[in-house]
Design a protein around this nucleic acid. Structure first.
Length: 667
RNA sequence: GCGCUCGUAGCUCAGUUGGAUAGAGCAUCUGGCUUCGAACCAGAGGGCCGCAGGUUCGAGUCCUGCCGAGCGCACCA
């Protein structure tokens, strides 16, 4: 918790500026930064540079005036003007640490954020096993959920299931046409094999089959039609495939501590006629209109307004390029129409609701709900879903255009605020490194275009990709080998559990540490590594911290509370003089600031780097014999160091929790 | 053609409201386990921040142009 101090320093600088120079403009921002080293200060601001021209004074002189006029600030020991013009602040170290441990004073409460936020993520086509690209989506989405909750936002997590799309239809075609299998055969396969893996292979074969004769695509169209209209046996088989694969996906995600509150099924959106209602709204508000001329004649279209687009230079611009067809001339709705209906519902603007049924049990024991359109399945008592003040849609960058259309649709029906509060959480895709593609047996022809690209694109249609569970298995196996080597006294099931925790940390950290705009060229060897900047590195730091606290009890018979209880009032020399210890405490306190930055930028790489950097500082501290806690003879020094360890461990544990990662009992 | 992203160490990447000396991991090299357990730590080498202009007290970060790469822009989903 450092943000309240930032605010206090800002307020006092503002106050001093008003008194000294009559500067009261609210637009003046006072940036708070961290000087390059603690000898210069704990916090600092370059505000004097901004004012130099305005006040016709050297930055240094302004900073000096401010330092003299700012007066005492609670929690601050001194304010200095640096020779180059920075205004630097030194904190009262003992008070700072004691307050953060809840041993002195009280920290201001977090701001209330009562408005409900929906986060939709994962949305994997339920026709095959999840792959690493899907994992990036889910890891980002779940981290977003955790970060929002951390700062007090009520969050509803949804996973959209496209059970009536082409991809499910393709696997149905595989069962019916290629394998000549019935629903009972499918059930038999599901009972005896990895069904999602089976579908993975079958899906790739269906793609090849289509390539063999384009006429076969007509079978796909007919299958899709049967699914949409509930024609059996096709519809029942499709439903079975989708449900079975969804359960497999849930299982996969649970291995990474990812789950959901509600599964929204596209089939229910169709059957409950959400689109018909959305279409009414769009027509009533004039958001869409029936085009009577040009190439879109007979279609219902929406104007695309693009304020960023350059104006047509010589009036030769194609007017149709500024229109998006929403309803085709044959009366059927385009894909994005269903998305609009779903989004209107999320934003509480549809005037219609799903029915709900219980689907499964969540990891914390709560109910995982699913939508339904079947009265006989519907449960009367259910939580209120949808109708959120803000929405985050976690979808890769290729969907940017469609997400933009969704925002425009909200605007066009007269709800610009809702449009503004719909955020497309976009991120780049996961591809494969050439080395990994080769290991999988997908080496492109060295003379082909593909070979010249910086990475190899994943393709579900070709069956080219790394399955999520295969990756997780490999990482866990490797972790288990390490655990077996180091913790041979532990029973096998406990070792297994630890390996699973370490594996989840490795995978999740790997998926979070890149910025959203970076294409991850997935390399298997890099992903399974536990050395350096990885999740297990952070876990290891926390395990070491726990070790110190355990030893303290063993050696001195003091538990954590007793150790800390002796701190208030004890001589603060150590923390005042030990730069390394203080740097650790100050850095640890920045979590709230980091979380705000993460929500503002939607960059979880920031969180990952913070966790790693703090763990790194702690590891150095731990490894330094001069900083030993239990070998320290002076009781006060021991207590201050223990306090720093406790605080650091607390903050690192929170960071891991935000990443959906647990702390192993031992490593 | 238009739009959006990206180009930083040998490799993979940070540098997200323009700030003090451009960082991390991996790889390479040198040290360190009878120590709070080395999944670690200490240290070394390694940079025209794609190129050229501009704005600013200050630019890896903002603007313009160029070069190079990726992804979008359907009466597909």
């Amino acid at each position: 918790m450092i943000l309240p101090l930032h605010e206090e320093v800002r307020a006092r600088v503002r106050d001093a500026l008003a008194r000294l120079h009559g500067i009261t403009d609210a637009e003046l921002t006072i940036p708070i930064e961290y000087p390059p080293n603690r000898a210069l200060g704990d916090l600092g601001t370059p505000v004097a540079f901004d004012l130099a021209r305005r006040l016709r004074k050297a930055p240094r002189a302004i900073a000096q005036e401010l330092a003299g006029a700012i007066g005492p600030i609670a929690g601050v020991s001194r304010v200095d003007a640096a020779p180059n013009g920075y205004l630097n602040v030194f904190l009262d170290r003992p008070t700072f640490l004691l307050a953060r441990l809840g041993l002195a004073g009280s920290l201001p409460p977090a701001p209330a954020r009562p408005e409900k936020t929906i986060v939709e993520h994962t949305a994997i086509n339920p026709n095959k096993a999840a792959h690493i690209g899907h994992l990036r989506n889910s890891a980002l989405g779940d981290t977003l959920v955790r970060v929002l909750k951390f700062r007090g936002n009520p969050v509803e997590v949804q996973n959209y299931i496209d059970d009536t799309g082409v991809q499910v239809a393709d696997v149905v075609v595989g069962f019916q046409q290629l394998e000549k299998l019935s629903i009972d055969d499918a059930k038999r396969i599901a009972a005896s094999t990895r069904f999602d893996y089976y579908c993975w292979d079958l899906y790739a074969r269906v793609t090849e089959w289509y390539d063999g004769d384009k006429e076969r695509l007509k079978i796909r169209a007919a299958t899709l039609h049967d699914i949409e209209h509930g024609v059996d046996p096709t519809a029942t088989l499709a439903s079975f495939i989708a449900h079975t694969v969804v359960h497999a996906h849930l299982k996969t995600m649970a291995r990474l501590n990812i789950d959901y509150q509600l599964l929204t099924w596209e089939g229910d959106i169709l059957r409950l006629k959400f689109w018909a209602r959305a279409f009414e709204v769009l027509k009533e508000t004039g958001a869409v209109f029936l085009q009577s001329e040009g190439k879109h004649a007979g279609c219902w279209v929406m104007k695309i307004d693009d304020p960023d687009a350059a104006p047509a230079e010589d009036g030769e611009e194609d007017p149709e390029a500024r229109e998006k067809v929403i309803v085709r001339s044959n009366g059927t709705v385009v894909y994005v129409g269903k998305d609009m209906a779903y989004q209107f519902w999320k934003s509480g603007l549809l005037g219609r609701d799903f029915l709900y049924r219980k689907f499964a049990t969540r990891m914390d024991g709560d109910t995982l709900w699913a939508t339904t359109s079947d009265q006989s399945q519907a449960v009367a008592e259910h939580p209120k879903f949808g109708d959120a003040a803000a929405t985050y849609n976690v979808i890769d960058v290729r969907q940017s255009y469609l997400q933009k259309l969704l925002k425009q649709a909200l605007s066009a029906i007269g709800h610009p605020q809702e449009a503004d509060r719909l955020k497309h959480f976009s991120y780049e895709m996961v591809a494969l490194s050439h080395a990994t593609a080769q290991q999988l047996g997908f080496a492109p022809d060295p003379n082909s275009e593909e070979a010249k690209k910086p990475f190899v694109e994943v393709s579900g249609r070709k069956g080219l990709g790394v399955k999520a569970d295969d990756l997780i298995d490999r990482v866990i196996d490797k972790a288990l080998a390490e655990v077996d080597r180091r913790q041979s006294d532990l029973p096998p099931d406990e070792r297994r559990r630890i390996a699973e925790q370490i594996g989840a940390a490795a995978v999740r950290y790997f998926l979070i540490k890149y910025s959203r705009t970076t294409v991850i060229a997935f390399d298997i060897d890099e992903a399974v590594s536990f050395v350096g900047e990885t999740g297990p590195y952070i876990q290891y730091a926390v395990v070491r911290a726990n070790k110190i606290i355990g030893k303290l009890q063993e050696r001195f018979g003091l538990d954590e509370t007793a150790t800390l209880a002796g701190l208030p009032g004890s001589p603060p020399d150590l923390i005042n003089e030990d730069a390394e210890l203080w740097a650790l405490v100050l850095e640890a306190s920045r979590l709230d600031e980091i979380v705000e930055q993460v929500v503002r930028s939607l960059e979880f790489a920031v969180l990952a780097k913070f966790g790693f950097g703090l763990a790194q500082m702690f590891s150095a501290f731990y490894q330094n014999p001069k900083q030993s806690v239990i070998n320290e003879d002076r009781a006060e020094a021991r207590r201050w160091r223990a306090a720093a360890v406790v605080y650091c461990r607390q903050q690192l544990t929170r960071v891991l929790d935000l990443m959906g990662v647990a702390v192993p009992a031992r490593m």
